[in-house]
């Protein structure tokens, strides 16, 4: 019991530290989920309805991102992006990398959900004279959303555990590291 109150003491002492950490985790995750989902819907649309070259490019993107560890993605957006003139601070780099990661997963979810809708739905919509855009917004998308909701929630929950890969003060001070990496490349 004594130990437990000692623990509570420590928690109380560190309450602001913990809350700040929690806030940061939540805000990185939520931002990444939101941005990643928007981007992921575009990815899913391209995978489902894009022409052949577009599908090829987007397919390569998703396969590459999904096959790359999150830590590497974060490293890449923190260090490599700066060499092409995009300087992100630690927070931005973390959100960016996680959003990209999220987008590839959401893209696959969207593609799967859209392709699972029976062809008869599109045909019925066409038969009453709907254009593709109208068919998509009124018939296909509402059904796809319902279908992908559970998987999407899983992905979102998964994303919350990812910010631990974000750049921290333990990482080489990025100004110097970036200068070094850009010098190494040039």
């Amino acid at each position: 019991m004594n130990e437990f109150s000692a623990f509570l003491d420590q928690v109380w002492l560190a309450r602001f530290v913990i809350l700040r950490g929690l806030g940061l985790t939540v805000s990185i995750s939520l931002l990444a989920i939101a941005l990643g989902s928007v981007l992921g819907v575009l990815v899913g649309l391209a995978l489902t309805y894009g022409n052949r070259p577009l599908r090829f490019v987007v397919r390569a993107y998703t396969d590459f991102i999904r096959g790359t560890p999150v830590l590497v993605l974060v490293l890449a957006s923190f260090y490599i992006l700066s060499t092409i003139g995009i300087e992100l601070n630690a927070f931005q780099a973390g959100v960016f990398a996680l959003a990209v990661f999220c987008s590839s997963h959401v893209g696959e979810i969207v593609r799967g959900a859209l392709q699972a809708i029976p062809a008869g739905q599109t045909e019925a919509a066409k038969a009453i004279g709907l254009t593709f855009r109208q068919t998509f917004t009124s018939v296909l998308w509402p059904q796809a959303l319902r279908q992908m909701l559970p998987t999407w929630v899983n992905t979102a929950a998964e994303m919350v555990k990812r910010p631990r890969f974000c750049p921290s003060s333990a990482w080489p001070s990025f100004c110097s590291a970036r200068r070094r990496s850009s010098r190494a490349i040039s």
Binding site: G120, Q121, A124, A125, A127, Q143
Partner: peptide
């Protein structure tokens, strides 16, 4: 033209 299908194809939502 109006069309009715074998599988009905109503919009389930």
């Amino acid at each position: 033209t109006g069309m009715a299908f074998q599988q009905f194809n109503l919009f389930p939502h």
